[in-house]
Structure formats: structure tokens, C-alpha cells
């Protein structure tokens, strides 16, 4: 299976400016442009009033940024996360943030119809769940709210540092 195909095929952006965004502050700059859009998608997937903690309460947007910029994260998927957001922005003609819940649902389901969009949404969901259900040392899963919701707790000993102090 060629994993990287889904990262490239299907995007209208033919050449990514992010590939060259090597320096981390460059990446941060690029991320800032789509930060709110990604946060809105995370909130739509993990809303308030669900049986699991919400995206905003768990600060998963910060988690997402810190996670994908860590050196242990796949560098191609890191770029894919930004490109996929930009693609959604294009497809919704820059309106996504101002949409109501119903419109957002429709837009995301439309995006999901393409394998590119579906892969991107799946990736956002995975990274978000990594935040809500990983050890609180990573900054999300605040007060173990994610674990409490599932009555499932991380094992002992718990990590004292992120990524085994890599």
C-alpha cells in the first residue's frame, strides 16, 4: 500500500508551500492561517454535551499543533494536515467558520465524499482522540476527564515527560 498517495492525490493545491516550510516558525505561521478552521472541525466532531469531553474543554487544538510539530510525528502527515485544512477552506469558499452546525455538518460530509477529504477528517479525529485519551502530561485530557468518561485509566507508572524525554 502506498500510503503517501492519499496525501497528494485529490488536492487542488498542486505544489504545497508547506513542503518548504522547514523552519518551525515557518510552520507555525502556516498553521496559524488554518488554526481556527481545524479547531472548528475538532469542535464539530467533539461538541459540548457529548458523553466524552469536548474539543474546547480539552484544548485539543493546542495539542494538535504540539503533536504534529514534534519530531516523532510523520513529516508528510504533518503537511497533509495543513493542506487538507486549506483544501476544506477552498471548498467551502472561506465560509466554514461562519457556518451554523447544520451547514458545517453538510460541508464536512461533502468533504468526506472524496477519499482525500475522508482521509483528512479521519486524521483529525485520530489526533484529537490522541489528545483526549493520552496521558495528561501531553496537555489535553485535563484532569483525566477523557479517561473518566470511559472509566479506563492509563497504566502505572505514568509518564513524567512527553515522548520518553526524546
Amino acid at each position: 500500500m502506498k500510503r503517501r498517495n492519499f496525501l497528494i492525490l485529490g488536492s487542488v493545491l498542486s505544489l504545497s508551500p508547506y513542503i518548504d516550510a522547514k523552519a518551525s516558525n515557518d510552520f507555525e505561521k502556516q498553521f496559524r492561517k488554518v488554526k481556527n478552521l481545524i479547531a472548528a472541525v475538532q469542535s464539530h466532531m467533539f461538541p459540548e454535551g457529548s458523553k466524552i469531553p469536548s474539543a474546547s474543554a480539552m484544548d485539543v487544538n493546542t495539542f494538535l499543533f504540539e503533536t504534529i510539530t514534534h519530531k516523532s510525528y510523520d513529516k508528510d502527515i504533518r503537511v497533509f494536515i495543513l493542506e487538507g485544512a486549506e483544501e476544506l477552506e477552498l471548498q467551502t469558499k472561506g465560509r466554514f467558520l461562519s457556518m451554523d452546525t447544520k451547514e458545517k455538518e453538510k460541508a464536512l460530509r461533502t468533504y468526506e465524499n472524496t477519499s482525500y477529504g475522508s482521509n483528512w477528517l479521519s486524521r483529525i479525529m485520530t489526533v484529537t482522540m490522541e489528545g483526549i485519551f493520552s496521558d495528561p502530561v501531553y496537555g489535553s485530557n485535563k484532569k483525566e476527564a477523557g479517561w473518566k468518561a470511559l472509566n479506563a485509566y492509563g497504566g502505572l507508572p505514568r509518564p513524567k515527560t512527553r515522548y520518553v524525554a526524546l
Binding site: G154, R158, Y163, V164
Partner: peptide
């Protein structure tokens, strides 16, 4: 990695290449 350095960190040990090469 010594015994007292191990932890049950799912994100590190099971979802990233922490103990195997990039």
C-alpha cells in the same frame, strides 16, 4: 531505557516510533 524510565505512555510507545528507528 532503564526499568525506572519505562512508563505506560500509550502515545509514545504505541503510536510513535520511540523505540524503533524513524
Amino acid at each position: 531505557i532503564k526499568r525506572d524510565e519505562f512508563s505506560k505512555d500509550e502515545l509514545a510507545y504505541c503510536r510513535r516510533d520511540i523505540v524503533t528507528p524513524n
